[in-house]
């Protein structure tokens, strides 16, 4: 049975990490390579282009700044959710987790307005290489945000039952969900200047 598998909730004595934590970091390593390839495409296309617009001329910097702050705040609430569990406070955890999800949804709604605005002005991915890379990168990032919302909602509602039986394992899961969420934040921290400011 799965209970035969060791180091699910307690860390391995030599490596010092649980299975889930190592697995999550490996997953994030592959995500680094995924976005690395896309940034590489961006660099190659931009250095090869005869002209390339500054992002601030075409995109809304204030909206993106607002979104950056939203995502940073959601990272803090996420880490606070984990810290609440470390202090054995489930209701506080739920409050912070709820905030994190709301902030993520706010991010997506703002992003949706940005997209809608672009479509209204007939700016599509096919318009230019700049828009192609803008829509692809932010779209893929948006999908990651959506994935985070789904995972976090699961851990807020049905997933939190695990707290009653396996509090240590549940805290570990929230830490891993947090790692993913901070990574999504991290990607945006680079996407924001690269697409909007440069």
């Amino acid at each position: 049975m799965s209970s035969l598998i060791r180091y699910i909730s307690r860390p391995h004595p030599i490596t010092g990490v649980t299975n889930a934590k190592l697995g999550t970091w490996c997953f994030l390593a592959s995500e680094v390579m995924l976005f690395g390839a896309l940034f590489s495409a961006y660099i190659l296309l931009r250095t090869g282009a005869s002209s390339w617009p500054r992002g601030s001329e075409l995109l809304s910097v204030p909206l993106a700044t607002f979104n950056t702050l939203v995502l940073i705040t959601s990272s803090v609430t996420m880490v606070m959710a984990w810290a609440s569990l470390m202090m054995k406070d489930l209701s506080k955890y739920k409050r912070y987790m709820g905030f994190t999800i709301l902030l993520a949804l706010t991010f997506l709604v703002v992003k949706g307005f940005e997209y809608g605005h672009k479509f209204e002005h007939h700016h599509f991915p096919s318009t230019s290489t700049f828009y192609a890379i803008y829509f692809t990168l932010t779209g893929l990032h948006g999908l990651h945000v959506l994935g985070g919302v789904i995972v976090n909602t699961y851990f807020l509602l049905p997933g939190s039952k695990l707290w009653e039986t396996e509090p240590e394992q549940f805290t570990g899961r929230i830490e891993c969900a947090g790692l993913y969420w901070h990574f999504v934040d991290l990607v945006w921290i680079f996407l924001f200047p690269v697409l909007y400011l440069l």
Partner: peptide, 24 residues
């Protein structure tokens, strides 16, 4: 783990080229 994601990215870019009319 580390070599496959770039093709996933490339696959997404080619899908965009085919379906959304981009020019990567």
């Amino acid at each position: 783990l580390l070599a496959f994601p770039p093709l996933e990215a490339a696959g997404v870019l080619q899908l965009m080229d085919r379906l959304a009319g981009t020019s990567f």
